[in-house]
């Protein structure tokens, strides 16, 4: 019941679009600077714009493919494991790792078996590290901030009569 994300089949679209936008925006910045620097004086602005027009959508597409694929695998794994309700951090991170494993593998499959294996493993490890850090932080903040030790006095409106 995470209200920040849509339920499963639809979230794939969301993720694809979000990842595409992220890649396109990031690519605009990246290739803008790169095109600017690699152009001769007098044509720097034009060079930047040309580089952005040529390369930013491609980067966005790459990001989008990754995001959409990851989301698809995520949904598939959730559907199979039936762990959507148990949205626990650890179970969820397992789901993410499995999805990341398949995503990395699928994206690298054109490079052959070895490339797919390496891509899958490194993708899963990367996501595991990110998730692990996230869980650690979550636990840290849960312990630090949500301890309800300072007892608020029973407020007047509750005492009544």
């Amino acid at each position: 019941m995470d209200h920040t994300r849509d339920p499963c089949p639809w979230v794939i679209l969301n993720d694809f679009g979000g990842a595409f936008c992220m890649g396109a925006v990031g690519g605009t910045i990246w290739h803008g600077v790169k095109g600017f620097r690699n152009s001769p004086y007098g044509e720097r602005r034009l060079g930047a714009i040309t580089a952005i027009k040529m390369r930013a959508p491609v980067l966005g597409g790459n990001f989008g493919v990754w995001g959409g694929m990851f989301s698809t695998f995520d949904c598939a794994v959730k559907g199979i494991r039936k762990k959507e309700d148990a949205y626990n951090a650890i179970a969820y991170s397992n789901t993410i790792q499995i999805a990341g494993f398949f995503t990395g593998g699928a994206l690298a499959i054109r490079g052959g078996y070895k490339a797919a294996r390496n891509g899958a493993i490194s993708c899963a490890i990367l996501l595991a590290v990110i998730e692990g850090v996230g869980i650690g932080f979550q636990k840290m903040f849960a312990g630090a901030t949500k301890l309800e030790a300072p007892q608020p006095p029973p407020s007047n409106e509750m005492k009544l009569a």
Partner: peptide, 12 residues
């Protein structure tokens, strides 16, 4: 540690 509740005593 990660599976336990965040606190030993949930309520004061």
């Amino acid at each position: 540690y990660y599976q336990e509740p965040a606190f030993e005593k949930l309520l004061p």
